[in-house]
């Protein structure tokens, strides 16, 4: 049997909102250690890697490893039926055809059950090598979302240049161009407002706005985002999910013609 309970559905609601633009379906790998999802978007440009540790759940039981193929659109619709304060329980039996979502209101007076058919999926699994990145930037997630949105008006790609002076985002298009520079924070009053740059060597990479704007849908999950970059390798855009895990987005860079 598989059963995982969260005291508040808000986290799971936000996770679904953070992946639904990129993924139509995904396999949820459930084991004793927790729930893992690794899936590429249809165009195979980006990869989503989600990790929810079993110890982050209020209750977690997984008698045997399960791979459950889920339709993300349907799952999003079901999670939208839960109030943020509702308790959410995911339940499936061994060799399941279905997964059940159970929402319970805070006062325990409303109990909702949604059963979703699982899908058989033949998914490729990618091995992501351990990488030491040339630049690792931590910055407020809302600031990153704002920059991606603002610069998307000027072109379909954003160039990110990171040096020890700071991080610069540039977009250029037919109607003009724009750039935004952020310096490392000298002294931040609050940790979540800080811009911190850990640079081994400068990096300059270009990424499609469309994907970055999908990644920033994870902004409600965490006040800070971590961007890891090295020359000619995918960007890693990481959001912590409370004390329970993280979501990482990998995005292939644009390659010079």
């Amino acid at each position: 049997m598989f059963e995982a309970r969260l005291a508040q559905s808000a986290i799971l609601k936000k996770v679904l909102e953070a992946v639904k633009d990129l993924l139509t379906e995904a396999t949820f790998e459930c084991s004793d250690s927790g729930i893992q999802v690794q899936a590429m978007d249809n165009a195979h440009v980006s990869l989503v890697s989600l990790n929810l540790r079993s110890d982050g759940f209020d209750k977690y039981r997984c008698d045997r490893n399960l791979s459950m193929g889920m339709n993300i659109g349907t799952m999003t619709k079901i999670l939208r039926c839960a109030s943020s304060e509702d308790t959410v329980t995911l339940r499936a039996w061994d060799n399941p055809d279905n997964i059940i979502f159970i929402f319970e209101s805070q006062n325990k007076e409303k109990l909702s059950e949604y059963e979703m058919k699982l899908i058989n999926m033949d998914q490729e699994h990618l091995g992501i090598p351990e990488t030491v990145y040339s630049c690792v930037v931590k910055m407020p997630s809302q600031e990153f979302a704002r920059i991606c949105k603002d610069l998307s008006q000027f072109g379909e790609a954003i160039t990110i240049a990171c040096s020890k002076e700071g991080i610069k985002f540039t977009a250029a298009g037919d109607y003009g161009n724009a750039n935004i520079k952020l310096a490392q924070t000298a002294e931040a009053d609050k940790e979540e407002e800080a811009v911190i740059i850990d640079m081994q060597e400068p990096v300059k990479l270009t990424f499609a706005c469309r994907y970055l704007n999908s990644f920033v849908k994870a902004t409600p999950l965490c006040a800070q985002v971590k961007l890891s970059m090295s020359g000619d390798v995918p960007l890693v855009c990481e959001y912590q999910i409370g004390d329970i895990g993280h979501i990482r987005y990998y995005l292939a860079p644009k390659i010079d013609d």
């Binding site: 165009a43 990869l47 490729e124 699994h125 091995g127 992501i128 379909e156 790609a157 292939a252 644009k254």
Partner: peptide, 14 residues
Amino acid sequence: TGTQGRIDSFFKII
């Protein structure tokens, strides 16, 4: 602005 790379050309399928 260049050609879009594919993620599976960077990471090996296992």
